[in-house]
């Protein structure tokens, strides 16, 4: 796909997968009205796993990860995140959302707040962190994503890649145990994709549990421990990246891979 993943520096030895279960999805189904978007999803994610979810558009991959922090509601089955079951209990939902960071394709930074305020808002209002402490953490995090000098600008003054890195910093300030990425680089110009992927590699090396919906197959190859292919609302195939790319089993997987890896 993109050349930007060619020069990613990835140290797989820093990534550890533990026995602890971060997310457990059992027989989950979801409908949009009459339309059956997700069908019998079963998925166990261990702490430290990096799972890349791919598939054609409309296959339900975004909907799946949006169910994990209840941006979408499932109608059947069970989702347990960090030991808390997702049901209509609002307290549980807010608790899970504070533990699960989410990155969006369109960044969704708060345009009326500065970069720093974007990062301190949730710690102050959800975690009740004192303001100066939250600001110190935010500055450290902005340094980690390499844009501390932009702290007092507004999001609209930054480039797409910088905005997405701020969005990552905003998540990290909440100290999440799991991070969900919904096509984080799809809205970026090619020269900005790498700066975002670099930060994601850094997170993976830090042991973050990650679910990534992306078309960056280079990233999948080098960072993921598992690649999952979805089509028409169902998990069609999943495997270690090496096997997945070189030895796909299902016909639909083969077709999809041949289409996206053709050039």
């Amino acid at each position: 796909m993109s050349d930007s993943t060619e020069e990613l520096h990835v140290d797989q030895s820093k990534m550890h997968i533990t026995d602890e279960i971060a997310i457990q999805i059992t027989d989950m189904n979801k409908w949009y009205g009459e339309f059956h978007v997700l069908r019998d999803i079963n998925l166990t994610v261990h702490r430290g796993e990096r799972i890349v979810v791919c598939g054609p558009s409309g296959s339900g991959k975004s909907t799946l990860i949006r169910c994990i922090n209840r941006l979408e509601e499932h109608q059947k089955g069970e989702i347990v995140v960090e030991g808390i079951e997702l049901n209509s209990d609002l307290k549980n939902i807010d608790k899970i959302r504070a533990e699960v960071g989410m990155l969006f394709q369109s960044f969704n930074l708060f345009p009326h707040l500065t970069v720093l305020e974007n990062c301190t808002l949730a710690p102050i209002w959800v975690r009740k962190t004192p303001k100066n402490e939250a600001e110190a953490t935010a500055m450290q995090t902005l340094e980690r994503v390499k844009i501390p000098e932009q702290a007092h600008k507004y999001p609209a003054q930054l480039s797409g890649g910088q905005q997405q890195r701020v969005a990552i910093a905003r998540c990290l300030c909440m100290n999440p145990r799991i991070m969900l990425f919904d096509e984080p680089t799809s809205a970026l110009d090619p020269e900005m994709i790498k700066e975002v992927l670099d930060v994601m590699v850094d997170l993976a090396e830090g042991g973050m549990t990650m679910l990534v919906v992306t078309h960056e197959m280079g990233f999948a190859r080098r960072v993921a421990n598992r690649v999952m292919f979805m089509d028409e609302g169902q998990i069609v195939e999943q495997n270690e990246p090496e096997e997945f790319f070189h030895n796909p089993q299902n016909e639909r997987t083969k077709l999809f891979l041949s289409q996206i890896l053709a050039h």
């Binding site: 969006f104 949730a122 209002w125």
Partner: peptide, 13 residues
């Protein structure tokens, strides 16, 4: 933008 509601939700507000 709908994303503003989602981003706020996703942060646990």
């Amino acid at each position: 933008d709908k994303g503003q509601y989602e981003a706020a939700d996703a942060l646990g507000l």
